[in-house]
């Protein structure tokens, strides 16, 4: 019963997404004013050739700060889990 319900959900969602995907246009984004501004002015404002780096670290710096925090938290979580698991390990952290 559960399996049939899952397959039904997947099929409905797949058909729905496929209808949208056929309708989208590829290769010509509509609203690109912000990216045109970045590509035109990013090189002079941040003195950087790589526009992606400019967006990541300068225009959207808060985003990268949150991303770094997520990575840090995940690594702390992994470390805590394994430290609880491996008790006999002579850990030099203590």
């Amino acid at each position: 019963m559960r399996k049939e319900l899952s397959i039904l959900i997947i099929v409905i969602l797949g058909v729905f997404l496929a209808l949208i995907a056929v309708d989208l246009t590829f290769g010509a984004p509509d609203n690109s004013a912000m990216d045109d501004y970045f590509i035109r002015n990013g090189q002079e404002q941040a003195a950087t050739n790589n526009i992606v780096t400019t967006v990541v670290f300068d225009y959207r710096g808060f985003d990268t700060l949150g991303e770094s925090t997520v990575l840090f938290t995940a690594v702390i979580g992994v470390a805590l889990m394994y430290r609880k698991l491996v008790k006999g390990d002579a850990d030099e952290n203590e």
Partner: peptide
Amino acid sequence: GMSVPFGPNPGELNTGGVLPLMNIAV
């Protein structure tokens, strides 16, 4: 702190402001 004119160029390491520092930190 060197400034970069608009357009394709060979690239100079001494540019970018705080971006290289942030790249090193990350």
